[in-house]
Structure formats: C-alpha cells, structure tokens
C-alpha cells in the first residue's frame, strides 16, 4: 500500500492539497478566505486530472516536423482548460456576492454575519 502510494505520489499530493482546501473552507470565517479554500480544492482536482495524462518522458502533443512520440495525453489538458474557466466563473460570482454582502452588512466574517441575522 505504502509502496503503491509512493509510486503515485503525485496523486497523493493532490489529495493532500484537496484536504488543505477543504480545511480552509470549513474553518475560516472570512468569506474570501473560504473561497480561497475552494479555489485550492479546485486546483487540487485540476492537478490530479492533468497528472493522469502524464506519460514518462512525453512531449507536448503538438504535431509537426521533428517531434517524436511518446506524447502527453492531450485529453486531460483539454478538459482542465474547460475546468479552469468554470472555476474562474464561479470565483467571479462569489466575489460579486461578497461585494454585495460587504455593502449591505459591513462585514464579511461569517460569524459576525450570523449574529447580524
């Protein structure tokens, strides 16, 4: 098990990053920090999916004269480009909401907001 994990250390690192993000989301009260935690989780998953596409010693999947196989798997990269755009979009909306919350309540600390309710 440990040996197998060592071989997949890249994936394990993504899991650790994922948990760091989750920790931030759960424990931080500041809404922007909460959202940064979410971004860390997203990044962890993106890194994981890109890592599934890695081939040892592979080249960038751009064809043309003078390039040799093996190539990196292009599919995960294409997926994650889409994933990044999705993450950016979510971030934009979250920040918009935070701006409004700040204007209306004068604070973006979750515990103070709960009291204000």
């Amino acid at each position: 098990m440990i040996a197998a994990l060592w071989h997949n250390i890249d994936y394990a690192a993504c899991v650790v990053l994922f948990c760091i993000g989750l920790y931030t989301v759960i424990t931080k009260h500041n809404l922007i920090k909460k959202f940064m935690g979410l971004n860390i989780m997203e990044t962890a998953v993106f890194a994981f999916i890109v890592a599934t596409g890695v081939v040892e010693g592979g080249n960038a999947p751009i064809m043309g004269p003078g390039v040799e196989p093996p190539f990196i798997n292009p599919l995960p990269q294409a997926l994650i480009l889409t994933g990044i755009v999705v993450a950016v979009s979510t971030t934009a909306l979250a920040l918009g909401l935070v701006i409004r919350i700040w204007h209306q309540c004068g604070t973006i600390e979750a515990d103070e907001l709960r009291e204000a309710e």
Partner: peptide, 30 residues
C-alpha cells in the same frame, strides 16, 4: 438583505459538491 448570504452559502456547498463530482470523474477517467 439576506439573499446574497443565502446565495453564498448555496454557492460554497454547491461548488464543493461539484468539485467532488469532478474528482470522481477524473478517477473514472484514470
């Protein structure tokens, strides 16, 4: 007044669940 707060809470829960689904999709792909 509390619409934005409700939306933010919804967004955080929703985004975490989406990430979980994406992680699962990544594993199935691998």
């Amino acid at each position: 007044k509390i619409a934005e707060m409700a939306a933010f809470k919804y967004l955080v829960m929703g985004a975490v669940s989406s990430i979980a689904v994406l992680f699962a999709i990544g594993m199935l792909y691998a």
